[in-house]
């Protein structure tokens, strides 16, 4: 009797099946779905009403908020690698003939898909408050860029989570690394000037994702120029202060590629959790 499988490694079915599993698990956990739908709605209400009520420029904060949603969801989706390991599921994937890169890619694409679901909900809700002045191709390109950002962030989450035995350590990483990374991505403070902060903003790969979305997501609503809003809006760079769009794409794609490579590299190592 011979084994059933063919001789080539079953890479793409493995990618597909692992990504699908992430989504199935996500939709089976009611509280995760509730959170996933609730978060964009709450952020939408909070930012649109809160900022507008205070005469702050909601349109300026919109792309940054979108990236924050992608960041949080993508990162938390990959924490599931810790669960997979603790529940033993990962062991059986590690000894299967599917190549390691397929395991990484399946996991990352599944997590990125969950992040995209939330990002797209937020994007759609935005249309109720801010009228998009973007053309359809621009919206489509924005969505593609969002997907690349999601993949980069999910792969980053995978790389961080791989060597962790519990989710506790993740909170520290979240507050000292991921949150500042978002704050310093031009989502909040514009990265202009020559201070050290501005340099961090420029070196932060996420900056280029946020900037790219600023190009594509245009709003009909005028930027308020009166009242306290002008202080906040004064910091908003005009579109020509942003890095060129081509640079945004190159950096974001490179960010995703480097993070996928890092995730692939680190997944060769075994942790104490694999040995039980």
């Amino acid at each position: 009797m011979s084994t059933l499988a063919t001789s080539s490694p079953p890479a793409w079915p493995a990618v597909f099946t692992l990504a699908q599993r992430e989504l199935v698990r996500f939709f089976r956990q009611g509280n995760r779905v509730f959170g996933a739908l609730g978060q964009p709605i709450i952020f939408w209400l909070l930012f649109s009403e809160g900022l507008r009520g205070n005469n702050l420029d909601y349109a300026f904060f919109f792309p940054g908020t979108l990236v924050m949603i992608l960041l949080f969801t993508a990162i938390f989706a990959t924490i599931s690698i810790i669960e997979d390991r603790n529940e033993g599921f990962l062991q059986s994937v590690l000894v299967s003939p599917a190549p390691r890169w397929a395991m990484v890619l399946g996991k990352v694409l599944g997590g990125a898909a969950i992040a995209m679901i939330q990002g797209l909900i937020f994007l759609a809700l935005g249309a109720f408050t801010l009228r998009y002045a973007s053309s359809l191709p621009e919206i489509v390109q924005a969505i593609v860029l969002m997907a690349v950002i999601s993949i980069a962030l999910t792969a980053l989450g995978f790389t961080i989570a791989w060597r962790m035995d519990s989710t506790h350590g993740f909170h520290a990483v979240m507050s000292v690394f991921l949150l500042p990374m978002w704050l310093l991505s031009g989502a909040f403070f514009p990265g202009t000037g020559n201070g050290w902060l501005a340099w961090i903003v420029r070196l932060n790969p996420l900056t280029y994702g946020v900037a790219g979305l600023r190009y594509y997501l245009k709003f009909a609503q005028a930027t308020p120029t009166t009242g306290p809003a002008s202080d906040a809006a004064a910091g908003a760079p005009p579109i020509d202060a942003l890095p060129p769009l081509s640079v945004c794409w190159i950096v974001t794609l490179a960010f995703a590629a480097v993070m996928l490579l890092a995730a692939w590299k680190i997944s060769a190592s075994r942790t104490a959790g694999d040995l039980k």
């Binding site: 059933l4 499988a5 063919t6 080539s8 490694p9 079953p10 079915p13 493995a14 597909f16 099946t17 692992l18 599993r21 059986s92 994937v93 299967s96 003939p97 599917a98």
Partner: peptide, 10 residues
């Protein structure tokens, strides 16, 4: 079982 089968290329 389906996931396992796909990991083994069935």
């Amino acid at each position: 079982l389906t996931h396992q089968g796909r990991l083994y290329g069935l």
